[in-house]
Design a protein around this nucleic acid. Structure first.
Lengths: 322, 322
DNA sequence: CTGAAAGCGCTTACAG
DNA sequence: CTGAAAGCGCTTACAG
C-alpha cells in the first residue's frame, strides 16, 4: 500500500542500499545523508515492509507458541508472559492452539517448516516424530520431546514432597493423589513419584488416581477418586483444572475443606486479589517464560543451550489447608 | 534450510512456474507433470517457504489480535475462539497484548503497517488517531474506533435491562450499578443507560459506581461501592474482574448472597463444570469471534461490510440470585 | 561513506 | 499445458 524503499531512495537521491543502512542504523552513514533519507521517509510516510526483510534475511523475528488451549488459566498466564518476553526481544508471537487434536499439531509444525516462525515453544501431550522437528528451534515445557529440545520445568519432585509433608504435618493420615498422567516422558511424572516416596516413608497408604484423560473429561477422575477411596483426609492435586473441579465438587456435596479434607494443588489457582481458595504450588511462569524465550532465541542463533532448566514453585496457603 | 522451488524444478525437469502451479493446485496441469513434480517434492522433502509467497503476493495470511491482556478469562476465551476461526480460514494468529500501555499499541500498529498481518482485531481502551489505522483492515469489539472500523458487540442495552428487571422481580428494591466506564465511544455505555432507564421506570434509586480505572485498580471501585452506598440489596456488575472481586469481598466480609445482596454480572464467570457461582450474562464469544474473522477477511479483500454486528447474551443463573 | 547489483523464494501475466 | 522472465521489497557483500 505505502511507499517502498525505492521511492525513498529516489526522493532522497541516494541508492536503496543507503536507505536500508539508515533504516538499520548502520554506523557508517554520514549525518547529511541520514538527514536527507529521514526527511524523505517522513514525507513519504514510509514504513519498511517486513516481507522483503524476511525474505532477504531468512529470518522472521516471529516465535510461535503451541498450547493445547488458551482459555485455561495456566496456559493463558504462560502465553501472557511469553508475549511480554518475546516483545522485549523484538519478536512477535504467533499463537497456535492444538485443541487437543494431533492433526492440528502436525499442521502447525508444517507451518513452522514453511518459515512462519523462527522457533517455537511447544506444549504438547502427543508423541511426535523427531523428524517433524528437524531444523526447527524448539523449546518444551515439562515434556521431553527429543534430544535436541531443551526442557523448562519446575522442581516437581521437591515441591510435591514438601506439599505432602505439609499435609502430614497438618494432621492428614490418608492422603490421595489426583492427577492426569502424562503419556510421554515428562517431568510431571515426578510429582506422583514424590507422593509415593513420602507416603511410603511415613507408612501412609497409597491412594492414587492418575490417568491420562482427554481434556474436558477430567470430571471422570473426580468420580473415580470418590468411588475408589471412600475415606481420605488429604489430597494432592496435579493441575488447576482438576483442582477447581474437585473444589467445586466438595462444595456441592457438602464436604468441608479443610475440616474434612485438606487439599494442595500444583497450579492450583490464579487469584485476582488476595483471596486464595485453594492452597497452591505456584509455578513462576514469569521467569519460566523468560527462560523459554532466551533459550529459543539462542537456539535460533545456533547457540548451545542447557537441556534442562528447573525453577522453584512457591507455596501459597489458601483455605483448603489448616 | 530446506530445498527451494528451484531445486524441485531442476529435479523434476520443469520450470519453477510449473512447480508453483502444482503447489497451488492450479487446474491446468497435466497429470504426468503433476506426478513428476510431486515426486521431486517428496524426494527433496520440500516445503514451500512463506516469505517468498508473502512477498510476491503481498499478503501474509496472518491476522493479529490486540487485547489489553491475555491472562483474563474474557480475553482468553475471545482469543481462543479467534484462533479457531482464523485457522479454519487458513489464517495464522499473531497475538499482541498492550499490557495497558498505549505506547505498545502504537508499536503494534506500526508492526501492522509493516505488513506483519493483513488485518487485526483491535480491543483497546485508548484513543488512536484514525491515521494510525490508515490502510489497515481492522475490526473492533464494543468500541467505536472510526468510521471505517466495523464493531462487533452484544445487546448491551437489552440484556442489562432484562437483568435489572430480573433483580426487581426477585425482590430487589435498591440496586447498585458497578462498572468501569469506558473512556471512548463504546457500546458498553449502554449498560449503564439501561440500568438508569429501568430504575427510573420503577422509581428505584440510582446507585452508581462507574469509573474508568486502570486494570489492577478495580478493587478501588469495590471500596467505593460500599463506602458510597451503605445499603443495597442488588447489584449489577459490568465485567468479570469486578464480579469476581466483589464476590470475594462479600465472602470475606460475611455478606451473604443471594440472601443479603443479589448480583448479576456481564461476563460474570466462565465455568469449568456446571457450577456457576455468579449469575451471568454470557457473551456468545464463539459466534462473535467467527463474525470478527469473517469481517476482517472481507475487509482484507476489499469488500464492504456492515458497520455494527450485535449478538444476544445468554443469562445463566448462578448462586448469586434467588 | 555510498552505489549498483545480485539474491532471498516465491507468483503471475505473457508467450507459445 | 508449460517455460522464461519480471517482479514483490528488502539486505548485503563488493567495489570504489
Amino acid at each position: 500500500m505505502g511507499a517502498t524503499i525505492k521511492e525513498v531512495a529516489a526522493k532522497s537521491g541516494v541508492g536503496i542500499g543507503t536507505v536500508s543502512r539508515v533504516l538499520n542504523n548502520s554506523p557508517q552513514i554520514s549525518e547529511a545523508t541520514r538527514k536527507k533519507v529521514l526527511k524523505a521517509i517522513k514525507e513519504l510516510d514510509y514504513v519498511p515492509n517486513v516481507a522483503g526483510k524476511r525474505l532477504s534475511q531468512k529470518k522472521s523475528y516471529v516465535i510461535a507458541v503451541l498450547v493445547p488451549v488458551i482459555d485455561h488459566p495456566f496456559f493463558a498466564r504462560l502465553v501472557s508472559n511469553l508475549e511480554i518476553e518475546a516483545d522485549k526481544k523484538g519478536y512477535s508471537l504467533l499463537l497456535a492452539t492444538s485443541q487437543h487434536r494431533i492433526e492440528k499439531e502436525h499442521e502447525i509444525l508444517r507451518r513452522l517448516q514453511q518459515g512462519e516462525a523462527d522457533g517455537a515453544l511447544f506444549v504438547t501431550h502427543y508423541e511426535h516424530l523427531e523428524e517433524e522437528f528437524k531444523g526447527l528451534a524448539i523449546v518444551s515445557i515439562d515434556r521431553h520431546l527429543g534430544k535436541d529440545i531443551p526442557v523448562v520445568t519446575t522442581d516437581n519432585y521437591e515441591a510435591t514432597k514438601k506439599a505432602i509433608e505439609y499435609l502430614i504435618e497438618k494432621g492428614c493420615k490418608k492422603i490421595a493423589y489426583l492427577g492426569t498422567k502424562p503419556n510421554q516422558v515428562s517431568e510431571v511424572s515426578l510429582r506422583a513419584k514424590a507422593y509415593e516416596d513420602v507416603c511410603k516413608e511415613h507408612n501412609l497408604p497409597l491412594m492414587i488416581v492418575n490417568q491420562n484423560v482427554g481434556h474436558g473429561e477430567e470430571k471422570k477422575l473426580i468420580d473415580e477418586l470418590f468411588n475408589s477411596y471412600k475415606e481420605f483426609d488429604g489430597v494432592f492435586v496435579s493441575g488447576c483444572t482438576l483442582a477447581t473441579l474437585l473444589y467445586n465438587r466438595m462444595k456441592l456435596t457438602g464436604i468441608k475443606t479443610p475440616e474434612d479434607i485438606q487439599m494442595v494443588s500444583y497450579d492450583g489457582e490464579f487469584s485476582l486479589d488476595d483471596v486464595h481458595h485453594i492452597s497452591t504450588l505456584e509455578q513462576p511462569l514469569d521467569v519460566m517464560a523468560k527462560k523459554c524465550v532466551e533459550l529459543l532465541i539462542d537456539k535460533i542463533n545456533g547457540k548451545e543451550v542447557e537441556s534442562l532448566s528447573k525453577f522453584n514453585c512457591r507455596f501459597i496457603k489458601g483455605e483448603t489447608t489448616k
